[in-house]
């Protein structure tokens, strides 16, 4: 969404706004359910991938923004983080910090 918006022309942007109700942003809960498949709740028994429950919010924002903007190296998160806006990253961080 974020990258789309930056490359769209004025006219296209108007259309995007018009169709906005159908393309409303998913909630942090809906996004977070995808994260835990790899990151796991503790019971899943992951060994290498960091757990996200109680993850410090400030650090998560720094990590995800860094991955997204190419300032932090990663094997996979750099590709995934590009999907999220600043607001979604904040919301995800708050969601996991509160677990």
């Amino acid at each position: 969404m974020r990258t789309q918006r930056t490359v769209l022309s004025g006219a296209a942007l108007a259309t995007l706004v018009l169709v906005a109700p159908a393309q409303a942003a998913p909630s942090a809960e809906a996004i977070a359910r995808n994260c835990v498949v790899c990151h796991g709740p503790k019971e899943a028994g992951q060994l290498e991938i960091p757990k996200l429950a109680n993850y410090p919010a400030r650090k998560m924002v720094e990590m995800l923004t860094g991955f997204r903007d190419g300032q932090k190296e990663a094997t996979i998160m750099n590709r995934i983080a590009k999907a999220f806006t600043d607001e979604q990253i904040q919301a995800l961080a708050a969601h996991f910090a509160a677990q």
């Binding site: 498949v37 790899c38 796991g40 709740p41 899943a44 992951q46 060994l47 290498e48 991938i49």
Partner: peptide, 10 residues
């Protein structure tokens, strides 16, 4: 391997 543990659990 972590992905596998996670998805089977989920």
């Amino acid at each position: 391997f972590d992905w596998y543990r996670g998805i089977v659990h989920d």
